[in-house]
Design a binder for these strands. Structure first.
Length: 172
DNA sequence: CCAGTGATTCTCT
DNA sequence: GAGAATCACTGGC
């Protein structure tokens, strides 16, 4: 799933404003993966990871940043895909305002930056992307994908579950 | 390079 | 239950 989500587009439409970005970098996390928030079982924070496919899991990290994942199911398994970076497609003006980023390259290049560009935080944890009227995924064309170890994890650091569109300048 | 910032989880009574 | 450790990061030096 993490591999296949590279090239898809995340779209947000709220209050007549539309923001869209093409996902270029993801990471996979599973229930039996020591690096995963779901590894030690279901808690109040990670409950969304155990939800049905399409459930949004948004968490706060380092007290100031948010990261977004989509649960892939099956329900109860605790597997999810982290969206790490994207290529801005629509609503660049709103993204710039939200992020105050110096360059467009950095608008969505990083999990917390991507969250910032879309205005997502813990309030949005648990929403169902398959039914939401304002946030959803759209399919994309298949693209060449490069595989590497995940960024910033201390456990299972050798597992190559990071997926990046080959040569993308929009990656983190 | 490293400080910021606070929720969550861990470890030990 | 308290205190400590950890943290799927970012921006500024």
């Amino acid at each position: 799933m993490a591999h296949d989500l590279v090239g898809t587009t995340l779209v947000s439409e709220r209050r007549r404003t539309r923001v869209a970005a093409r996902i270029v970098e993801t990471e996979a996390y599973t229930g039996d993966d020591p690096a995963s928030h779901s590894f030690a079982g279901r808690t109040a924070r990670n409950a969304s990871m155990f939800g049905p496919p399409g459930t949004l899991y948004v968490y706060l990290i380092y007290g100031m940043h948010h990261c977004l994942n989509v649960a892939t199911g099956p329900e109860g398994e605790g597997s999810a895909v982290l969206f790490r970076a994207a290529e801005p497609v629509e609503g660049l003006g709103l993204m710039r305002r939200r992020r105050g980023a110096p360059r467009d390259r950095d608008l969505c290049a990083g999990p917390a930056r991507l969250c910032g560009a879309f205005g997502l935080d813990r309030r949005h944890d648990g929403i169902d992307l398959t039914r939401s009227t304002w946030l959803w995924m759209e399919p994309g064309s298949r693209v060449p994908v490069e595989t590497t170890p995940r960024i910033g994890v201390s456990r299972a650091a050798d597992v190559a579950w990071r997926f990046v569109e080959f040569g993308s300048p929009w990656a983190s």
